[in-house]
Design a protein around this nucleic acid. Structure first.
Lengths: 329, 329
DNA sequence: AGGAAAAGGGTAAACGTTTACATTTTTAAA
DNA sequence: TTTAAAAATGTAAACGTTTACCCTTTTCCT
């Protein structure tokens, strides 16, 4: 592949001159510029970004660590980062990490080796201490969907607790008394917080969530089905169901209808996340909107600005918003 | 950030030695190795991938051009590439291209500048000649979801025509006579091919698709709804509907049920793609499985092998497969 | 003890750029 | 013309690695 030297030689100029025309710099005559341009074209010259990064100490790269690209939620996250990257003429390098602290650390290391300008990390498993230490070493590092008090200026997160509260209040306002919940059985904070907020607000409304009205399972369609079957099997009736996420909610609706319950006439169901699924389900899902793409955009802005030693003024703490569709009444 | 020189200086050895321990090379004694390792740790040394790429002429990067990361279909594609990348210790660099040949070209150029080992391109807009020329210049370039005869060994594609055929045969085998179709109005090959295959196989079965039984619109939920409304408005009855993709199919089901038609009792609907949506809809969607993730994996394998001057033996030409669920009868 | 082979370690060039600084050429005012 | 300023171009160092090649210790056999 042709290098700047080849172009210089063929065009009969110095590499400095070629560099100047490549970078649209000043100080180069029209005549030479045209000559160089035509040689570049003839030779199919493309500048080497690695060499450039080395000498300029800028990689024009933004790194992103997520567990799984195929999950629409993370795809939306990545898409948000990508949009800001595009605006800043920076490219998106993705590092996926599979379900272990070890692998999350590795994914980050790869991005550090690449000397990414900025790094956005979705980590649920890495220890707080590690993350804090990392954030000290890397100026452009931002955590998304995770809150760590001591480095809260580096975090962009959603208030899960409040999400639970909102769901509870919605059910209360609809007059529901017999309330159930299907939750994720993953050992991360989110399920605990959502449930806690849900409980708290229920109490405020003089309602309560019986212990056996909470069923845990995988946060997936199948998990939602199984969790709902268990709830049904217990025999206790309920008219309102709070699901950990949209996938579980849709699984729940499916199981409920298979068992003769109409949604929302017999049971109201509320989801969480507002992923694309929720608009495609029938009935359309009432859910809590998780503005992940916007959050990712802000995280990217923040990361880029921290990397440049500034501090962008963007929202970091998000509240989920209730989207009323057809699954609650 | 500490460099190899810093480590060498502090450890009292040459940079060659440090390089050897970093790369787990031979020819370094236990004693020195330990010393270097501890200094590396103390200084928080991380090798610079750009410098490495420069000298080794290997970027350990695989590039991917797609139009939109937030679309689950492309997210699945990216995920497939990522899996192979991981296996090959290579990182995924994503370049999104928005709806124009120009922008597709730019996205590719960015990856070339990065000297990606291999490049996977999902391009519907770039001219064949450009793509052919590009594939000549770049050994590790593979086209996904596009077929160009003269460089067919660089293509991984799905047989859209056959997809249409399969749908038609399925309807015929179910005894349907009054058949309709909602198609995408995008001016790319896929909609034309699917429809053509559908028509062709219908004729073989002595059936036919009336011209006014084809309605075009955007390939989205909303587009599916509108296209179906138009079909309904025409007044002609139909009992089988072939949708361009799952989103349109789900939109169609929604509109059909809103108009008092039961799916599949009154109308059978078949989708295309088998994206995650189709499993979450009610009734679950009968559709043509588009094995995009597997295709992407093979594209990545192929790209990497071409880049290494070999030629992996993988399937390049895929057939969609009928997934019978609940929306046809 | 002598010596050869093996092991450990160092030197310096190369990768493809950018850029401060130096040099040459052109322009235009005197 | 001369000449000072401006414009164009060139020189060379630097970025952080890897690696071929060379030199110095060890090791271990006879």
């Amino acid at each position: 592949m042709a290098t700047i030297k080849d172009v210089a030689r063929v065009a009969g100029v110095s590499i400095a001159t070629v560099s100047r025309v490549v970078n649209k710099g000043p100080k180069v005559g029209q005549r030479t510029r045209d000559k160089v341009l035509s040689v570049m074209n003839e030779l199919g010259y493309t500048p080497n970004a690695n060499a450039r990064a080395l000498v300029t100490q800028k990689s024009t790269t933004i790194g992103l660590v997520i567990p799984d690209l195929s999950d629409p939620f993370f795809a939306a996250l990545a898409s948000g980062v990508d949009k800001i990257a595009k605006d800043s003429n920076v490219q998106l390098l993705i590092s996926t990490s599979s379900m272990s602290a070890e692998s999350e650390k590795q994914a980050i290391d790869l991005l550090v080796e690449r000397r990414c300008e900025a790094i956005i990390i979705h980590s649920k498993l890495l220890a707080e201490t590690t993350l804090i230490e990392l954030s000290q070493r890397i100026p452009g590092l931002i955590l998304i969907d995770r809150f760590i008090e001591s480095i809260n200026d580096r975090c962009v997160w959603l208030d899960n607790l409040e999400g639970g509260r909102i769901a509870a209040r919605h059910f209360a306002s609809l007059g529901h008394k017999q309330i159930a919940c299907i939750n994720s059985n993953y050992s991360i904070d989110d399920p605990k917080l959502r449930l806690e907020g849900f409980r708290l607000a229920l109490v405020e409304q003089a309602l309560k969530l019986e212990n056996d009205m909470v069923s845990e399972n995988e946060p997936s369609l199948k998990g939602g089905e199984i969790a709902t079957q268990k709830l049904l099997a217990s025999g206790k009736p309920f008219s309102a169901l709070f699901a950990y996420n949209d996938a579980m909610a849709i699984g729940a609706i499916s199981t409920l209808e298979d068992n003769g319950f109409k949604v929302p006439q017999d049971v109201s169901v509320i989801g969480f996340d507002d992923v694309i699924l929720s608009r495609y389900s029938r009935p359309k899902l009432t859910t809590l909107h998780y503005p992940i793409e916007e959050m990712a955009q802000n995280a990217a802005k923040l990361a880029l600005s921290f990397a440049a030693n500034e501090q962008a003024d963007v929202v970091r703490n998000y509240l989920p918003r209730l989207i009323k569709r057809e699954s609650t009444a």
